[in-house]
Simulated assay, not measured.
Amino acid sequence: MRILVSGGLGFIGSHTVVELLNHKHEVVIIDNLYNSQISTLHKIERISGKKPAFYELDATDYEALENVFQSYDFDGIIHFAGYKAVGESVRKPLEYYYNNLVSTINLAKLAVINQVPKFIFSSSATVYGDGTSPFNESMPLLERTNPYGETKAMSERILTDATKANPGLNVVLLRYFNPIGAHPSGLIGEVPNGIPNNLMPYVTQVAKGLREKLNVFGNDYDTIDGTGVRDYIHVVDLAQGHVAALEANISGVEAVNLGTGKGTSVLEIIQAFEQENNIKIPYEIVSRRPGDIAVSYADTTKAKNLLQWEAKLNIKDMVRDAWHFESNLK
């Protein structure tokens, strides 16, 4: 299949492109390099032995997108392009609503016009709001606690309605939990611009001596040690979940969790990193971060049954591969 991947040079996008190429799919990447690097394109080629087509453009630019669709007939779209930081979305809600919703609308519109049958959307467990874990796909979605989560829920609604109105469009809404780790080659991983918003790149930057210490946001949650609990999933497992969703025979629209089904606290992640890599991580407990919830982990039954997919890699693999990637960065 020929697949358009928006945001294909980002953290999850680049790993998914590698897995698509490994499964003999043809890939066309679009990315505006807002939170990614052009060097990732060459690293994808080194890992896979294949160079995907690349267009530097913004998915909110309809005309630029339209030109790409005029050059190719696509069998599927995987849509990653979007802003993704919970805390930043609280500070910059208008930027998040514009970027994340307009990009989704543009790609959905072009999918319908060009009769692209498969659309895989990069959603998030944040659509469940401050509910009770384990989250499963049949749960009603509660009010989101931040604009980032709201843009994901609204995009899901947009794509669901587009599918109802256009029966030829089949959509899988992949609700990610917390991707960490890196490709085992050490060539691609998470490289945030500026101060990391996610836990693992902050941990690895502290380990490398780039930052003095890790801030742990809150230790008064109702959890095993007071710190937030999340379902951490290796990014390679997550990428393989996208290939499974693409290759599955899905009709209409389906929401599917991608996680491990296990919760791990922030302090447990720090301890696992220290033990696996033999590096001490200094940290400080600070106040809770706006928009965060205490516990989030997945019910993964549907992914196993519908996609024949489940996560295979564990926390040790995640922290080892994340550090391998960071220690290779120059």
Rank of each mutant, 00 (worst) to 15 (best):
F177D: 00
L159T: 09
N136T: 12
L174D: 00
K164W: 14
I180V: 10
G181L: 03
D130Q: 10
Y176G: 00
V171G: 00
P179I: 01
L173Q: 11
N178L: 11
E143V: 08
P140R: 12
L174P: 01
L159C: 10
K152S: 05
T160K: 14
P134S: 00
Y176V: 01
E137H: 10
F135A: 02
E143C: 04
T151H: 06
A165L: 15
S133I: 05
A165P: 04
T160H: 14
T160A: 11
S138I: 11
A153E: 02
L173P: 03
G131D: 11
N170S: 10
A162L: 13
L169Q: 02
L159W: 12
L141G: 01
E143Q: 13
N146V: 06
V172E: 01
P140L: 13
T160L: 13
A182L: 06
A153W: 03
F135E: 00
G149Q: 01
I158S: 05
S133K: 05
A153P: 05
A165K: 12
N170G: 02
F177H: 08
L159H: 11
L141F: 13
L159F: 11
I158T: 13
R157S: 12
R144C: 13
D161T: 13
G149K: 02
V171R: 00
R175H: 07
P140Q: 12
P167M: 07
M154C: 08
G181H: 04
R144E: 11
T160I: 12
T151D: 04
N136W: 14
I180P: 00
F177Q: 03
Y176H: 13
L174K: 01
S155Y: 09
N170Q: 09
K164Y: 15
G149D: 00
E137S: 10
D130I: 05
F135Q: 04
I180G: 12
T151N: 06
S155H: 09
L142V: 09
R157N: 13
L159R: 07
M154V: 14
L141A: 09
A153V: 13
F135W: 05
S138E: 15
G149S: 10
A162Y: 15
D130T: 08
A162I: 08
V171E: 03
S138L: 12
S133V: 11
P179N: 04
N146M: 06
K152I: 07
G168K: 15
T160E: 14
P147K: 00
N178I: 07
P179W: 00
I158E: 08
F177W: 12
T163G: 06
